[in-house]
């Protein structure tokens, strides 16, 4: 697993303590040259705060949309994304990849 300078879980815990509604998105599977390995996390609040990442920035917006839904319903979702060549190029990759992300509410 990767070690992260930014402790996403600790930040998420602080946000919860502040009264925020928080969702966690976690990379569970990757194929091809996905930018972030399994276990990479993104924490997001209903108010729009972000910590960590699940890609090089390609899919965070789409994950955030789903996270809002998950925060409202409390029901986790499993998402699959193809990382486009164009976006993969932006994060320094020569070819695309696919990534599966699990999104859950921190209840």
């Amino acid at each position: 697993m990767t070690e992260e300078a930014e402790d996403v879980l600790a930040i998420a815990g602080r946000w919860v303590a502040e009264g925020e509604t928080v969702a966690l998105a976690t990379v569970v599977e990757t194929w091809g040259s996905s930018p972030r390995p399994p276990g990479s996390r993104l924490a997001i609040t209903a108010s729009g705060r972000l910590a960590g990442s699940v890609s090089g920035g390609c899919i965070e917006g789409a994950v955030a949309d789903v996270a809002r839904e998950v925060m409202a319903t409390g029901v986790p979702q499993l998402l699959s994304f193809g990382v486009t060549n164009e976006c993969a190029w932006e994060v320094g990759l020569a070819c695309g990849g696919t990534v599966t992300v699990f999104v859950e509410k921190l209840a």
Binding site: M1, T26, V28, E29, P38, G39
Partner: peptide
């Protein structure tokens, strides 16, 4: 192994996320 992975058992998929 210190590696996060998906494991399938009895038709169910589990995500195993180590925190060492």
């Amino acid at each position: 192994d210190d590696a996060a992975r998906v494991v399938e058992h009895a038709g169910e998929r589990w995500f195993l996320h180590p925190h060492n």
